[in-house]
Amino acid sequence: MAEGIRIDNLVKTYGQGDTAVHALRGVNMSVAKGEVVGLIGPSGSGKSTLLKCLGAVIEPTSGRMTIGDRVIYDDGWKVGDLRALRRDLIGFIFQAPYLIPFLDVTDNVALLPMLAGKPNAVARKEARDLLEALDVAHRAAAMPSQLSGGEQQRVAIARALVNRPPVILADEPTAPLDGVRALAVVDMLNTMARQFDTAIIIVTHDEKIIPTFRRLYNIRDGVTIEELQLEASPARRT
């Protein structure tokens, strides 16, 4: 399978000298396109820090990161425009859906292609198609506050997918959902990963969804340990 995102020996140190916090001490990770992996670890182990580095929100202290063929960081060197890079290459799904409350469902999703310069009509068409695929097309004209938690999360997934990024980062996406809905979201992410050939990394604590990952990265004290779960059932229907 083609490589989606890869990091080699990524180090992130907050602060300097005596007060320095070594959040990441040399992390290696590789996720293929169309693959969904879990990222787990106890609190304070460095999950959020790693996610921020992967998301080009903060810069690692050293190490190398590539998305597809593009080098993003290489030992202190970084691409010029991280903002445009986030917009074009990375989709984000948060703990809470964080939809823009003053935009309707369609425009919440269409905003990204609009920001990338696409005409409104084209952007809205793309948004509606995705909402269709995620089974929320019937709420396309609603405001976020009118949706249920599950519907909001599906709209958030549509927003993460709409620019067809090669990588999607999900930060505890099932935290606010009950077991059935949580599994439904993971199921949906698996489907989307295959359908759009996207590498998806899911940070989670959620015991209910951990068994669904075929491959897991367990992070402890800033170092990842790769785990395989051969009996995992990623496409389990609920």
Binding site: V57, R83, R86, F92, F94, I100, L111, L112, L115, R159
Partner: peptide, 8 residues
């Protein structure tokens, strides 16, 4: 969120 998803 707007900044994270690439709004300038």
């Amino acid at each position: 969120v707007l900044k994270l998803i690439g709004t300038c």
